[in-house]
Each structure stands twice: as structure tokens, then as C-alpha cells.
Amino acid sequence: MLAKRLIPCLDVRDGQVVKGVRFRDHVVMGEILDLALRYRAEGADELVFYDITASPQERSVDRQWVEKVARSIDIPFCVAGGIRSVEQARAVLHAGADKISVNTPALQRPELIDELAREFGSQCVVIGIDSLAAEDGWRVHQFTGDPERSRESGRDTLQWVGEVQQRGAGEIVLNCMNSDGVRQGYDTEQLGAVRERCQVPLVASGGAGAAAHFLSVFRDCDVDAALAASVFHSGSVPIPRLKAELAAAGIPIRPHEPQQTSAIQTH
């Protein structure tokens, strides 16, 4: 049976992992590789690296750290931020990323999704959606990486969820902006509504504050994965314990196992 995934999200700026308070005042958390290895050892099922400076500065992701991560960890990882073309996606995938995630550039030019899926296969193409409650349903927001430019895109979230799948998205990350950073739990109402429209894997993002929130999003919304940043970074929800609790509650989980280091014997 397919296990539910736990995905720490690491914000990367100038080659380091940072933590921002409301997108500002970034504090350096550590070196990319150190944190990647730490999460791998703790039993993370996948990692997402979000290059928070690439997109607003209109530059592409720095290949060097992607290559280092690809060579050092043995779990999958996705790179987000600053991917606006097939060529930029190719550079990141060839540097060793398993998937790429696209958000605002897909809103500006939806054909990009078709191009990426055709070139690399849907399984590499993740679409990130930043969504906020409106009077009637939810609306997609764009340029959310930059508080000065962040604004509504005019698209209805459920409609956009349908369109990105038709265009070839292989996975959707739904970041619920109402609950993001508040640590009061995932937006299960919105995630449930999106789940009904989403036939590809769905990743919940925004709001995790306690182990119970993960249990509820898996049980009530049937999401495939849950993404979180601060609760994992701060250690307030340690991944090994979270995995044990979810498994005890009947959620299919890849059990945490100690890392093995071994080398082939020379004969």
C-alpha cells in the first residue's frame, strides 16, 4: 500500500536555508546540505527546496546546491522557485532534482505546464497553488514570494486545479494561505473540496502546528502528503515520533528506520 508522505519544506536564499517571519526578516537556519541530511536521517519521505529569491529576482535556480543535494541524499526531492521555461526545468532536473514545482509562471502562461509534461513526463511536474478564501469559494494568488507584489490572480482555485491536471500536472501542492503560518491546523475544508477535483497526488501545505493536524489532514482529506516547515525546523513535531503516532492511528506510513551506512566489500 502506498504510504502517506511527510515533506519538510526548506526555503533557500543565497545557498542557505532561511526562515522568514511573514516573508521578511529572514534568519539563516543552516547550510542546505546539513539540513537535507538531518531530515533524511529523521525519516522525511521527500524534501522540497523553495528558492525564495530566484522567482522575484527573475533568475533561475543555482545548479550547484541542487547537484550537491542530489549526490548526498537518497530520498527524492523537489525544487521550486524560478522555473519559467523548459530549459530552466531541464537544468534543475539534470542537476539531479526528481521533480520541479511551478507556481506563478504557470498562472502567467498555462501552456508551460503542457510543455513541461510533454518534455519530462507528468511525474516530474508539480504545480504549486497559493489559495485564499473569497466570498464564494477560493481564489488563486500569485507572486506570493514577494509581499510587495503578492495579489489575486483572478482565477478560481477549483477551476485552476482542474485545468492544471488537464494540462499534465503530475502532482498539486495546495498552500492554503488562510491557515499558513498560524499553526492552527491544515485547512481541511478547502483541501477536501480540492481533493474531490484532484485525481493526481495532492500535497497539503499551510497550517501544521501539532501532530494531530497531520492525522486529521490524512484521515479527513485523504491527501497523499503533508508539507510543513516551521514545526519540523523547530523540532516541535519530531518526524520519527510523528510517524509512530500516525502509524498507531492506522495511517499508512513508511516506518522510520535508522540510516545504514555500508560499502561493497572489495574482492
Partner: peptide, 15 residues
Amino acid sequence: QASPGVRVPHMGWNQ
């Protein structure tokens, strides 16, 4: 084949 609860691509850790 996708079906309710079974998504394609098959993506993730399986036993």
C-alpha cells in the same frame, strides 16, 4: 488505472 483513492502517477513510498 486510476480509480477513487488510487491516483496516477503512482508517486511515493510503497511496500
